[in-house]
Amino acid sequence: MSFAKLTVSAVAIAAVSATAAAARDQIQIAGSSTVLPYATIVAEAFGENFDYPTPVVEGGGSGAGRKKLCEGVGENTIDIANSSSRIKQSDIDTCKANGVNDIMEVRIGYDGIVFASDIDGNEFAFTPADWFNALSAEVLKDGELVANPNTNWNQVNADLPDQEILAFIPGTKHGTREVFDEKVIEAGCEASGAAEAFKAAGKEDGCTTLRTDGVSVDIDGDYTETLARLDANKNAIGVFGLSFYENNTDKLRVATMDGITPSTESIASGEYPVSRPLFFYVKNAHLGVIPGLQEYIEFFVSDEIAGKNGPLAEYGLVSDPELAKTQEMVKNQTPMGTLN
């Protein structure tokens, strides 16, 4: 019995003393799984080249990362939140309520979203309107809104192959889905003229309501799951990040969008329409408290990492043409202003 008591009290003492003494010396990062590979590449290089410990990087999703960032100031809260979409006003309000006042918004570059099918399958040249007409719950037919009757791609657009429509799109918890909805489905909705019809009919979310008859499948896992599903369904089309596609070009055939093939160049020039900026958010109150935090951020946006020929671009990140501005901002530790 005394042995048990001894152990319990020893652990209690250890726990208490550790809380008092634990000056955390490594940076802690959490958030978007899209930014995660980039963050790990930078963290690894940072650990190799600096005398600071390698930062600990967690995934978990953009929203979860921002929520963790806004939990408060202190060593048991994270320093940086990776995010594949911009921070929301609600996040900023939560942050303020928890005493996290100054946040620095760092844009690291752009990510393209590509549509790809099995390497041995048909070739596709899409427009956003094709995707809207293929996946929307209701489409415009002869001026009337009707339940989506299309079953094959050539019914959507005569130029597309006669292949059954089956799409694996990211689930709603992914930041990628937001971009897909906005840049593809909503854009297609506008282009096909259905947006006006929805407005006239008073259906506010008409554009983004997708069909639920099994033609469009939400994937809640990662791109590896989408790839595995494509492997099992050779007729399907999947939605991937550009970097994932670039690492699996031997298995995937990429489709063009509006006639443009996705590549880091076409995304950087803005020709390829489906792209989005990637960010990370830094808790300014931790700068100078957590050793190496300032150095890590500066290292991340430096030309040799985030520039055109850096390892991030090699992995599939589209480097930011305005990187110099970001470097300047990071150097001055300028917190972000209000969201516009």
Partner: peptide, 21 residues
């Protein structure tokens, strides 16, 4: 509890190491 993370540094010897990532 944050253990599904990318960790590259080896933790120190116990007992301090128990508190390292």
């Amino acid at each position: 509890i944050g253990m599904v993370a990318f960790v590259r540094d080896f933790p120190a010897a116990p007992p301090e190491g128990l508190f390292d990532p």
